[in-house]
């Protein structure tokens, strides 16, 4: 097990350098004039050009510059935003907790409603509950999230007045994130229902379940101890990767409800062509995905002994 984790960590280090190298290369090397690319279509005067050349070490070889960039990334020094000139790290430190908070709500919906409904549907395959949830998940998967978001905002926010229409942290607190969280998690929720249902239904037919029955175990124990443990292996993998997705910020959901998280900031940065900000967010997203995948792989090995020794 320890060897497995060490090997996965080493793989992660490789993946980190690989992905950041590509991101960095695309930012500065793929375009002809990196400073012009940073500034977008606005003209760049000589003073700014000289300042940026020094700041980004543009007169040094590519790999040296890459080294400075990685060092900055690892030490939390991401440089300054082009708009307003605030340190990027400071802006992101402000945004990420909101996104994490929103992601937490989405994740709770996915785990409790998604996995819960999936387990029940899997056990009662072919029943009314199963057919109803299958239909509902199909609807949710079929509707784009901006349609679902705007519809629920109109229905539950504007008309029914149950939830705030837009999110204001000081006014709404945690309550204001429930509806955005549900919408952010809806696609993953529907997928989790289907994945869990299939997995449970499949495991209920497995040979080892027949063995457990023949041993004289109670039905409840067979379901909880034998079937669920095996069924949840693929579900946990899915959930782990979803953590990465949800933490990455939600441009659409955060946009609809005016939640000032990472997705909100990313969209702003893209709109005003704030290159360093975009690259910083993307780089951190890469790290988050890598960590989420590491978590998944470790959990996978914990749940399934067959993985550990390969």
């Amino acid at each position: 097990m320890l060897r497995y984790i060490i090997r996965r960590l080493l793989q992660m280090v490789l993946a980190f350098f690989g992905t950041t190298l590509i991101v960095y290369y695309m930012m500065f090397q793929a375009s002809g004039d990196p400073i012009q690319a940073l500034a977008g279509e606005k003209p760049v005067n000589e003073a700014v050009r000289a300042k940026l050349t020094a700041e980004y070490h543009l007169d040094e070889p590519f790999l040296v510059r890459y080294w400075y960039y990685v060092k900055g990334l690892l030490t939390g020094d991401l440089g300054n935003s082009l708009s307003g000139g605030r340190p990027i790290a400071e802006v992101l430190a402000e945004r990420w907790p909101t996104t994490a908070n929103l992601a937490l709500y989405a994740f709770i919906f996915v785990v409790i409603l998604g996995v819960g409904a999936g387990v029940i549907a899997g056990i009662r395959r072919g029943g009314i509950f199963d057919n109803t949830t299958l239909l509902l998940t199909l609807v949710v998967i079929g509707i784009p999230s901006f349609v679902l978001g705007l519809t629920l905002q109109l229905g539950l926010g504007v008309k029914a007045g149950i939830f705030p229409v837009t999110y204001m942290e000081e006014r709404d607190g945690q309550f204001g994130l429930i509806l955005p969280g549900f919408i952010l998690g809806s696609l993953a929720l529907a997928t989790a229902v289907r994945l869990t249902r299939t997995s449970v239904a499949e495991n209920l037919r497995a040979d080892y379940v027949r063995t457990a029955k023949a041993k004289g175990l109670a039905k409840r124990r067979i379901t909880i101890v034998h079937v669920l443990r095996n069924s949840l292996i693929p579900v946990v993998t899915f959930l782990g990767i979803e953590i990465g997705n949800l933490m990455g910020g939600a441009i659409i959901t955060e946009g609809i409800f005016n939640v000032q998280g990472v997705g909100f900031e990313l969209k702003k940065a893209i709109d005003i062509e704030d290159g360093p900000m975009v690259v910083s967010i993307v780089s951190i997203l890469v790290v988050i995905y890598l960590l989420a995948n590491l978590l998944v792989d470790i959990l996978y090995a914990v749940l399934d002994p067959r993985i550990r020794y390969e």
């Binding site: 040979d207 080892y208 027949r210 041993k215 004289g216 095996n230």
Partner: peptide, 20 residues
């Protein structure tokens, strides 16, 4: 009675045992 009075073993022990 199952397992205590009458027990059963199966053909393919790999799939008949719980892998985890």
């Amino acid at each position: 009675l199952r397992g205590k009075e009458i027990a059963m073993i199966f053909q393919d022990a790999l799939s008949a045992l719980n892998p985890v």
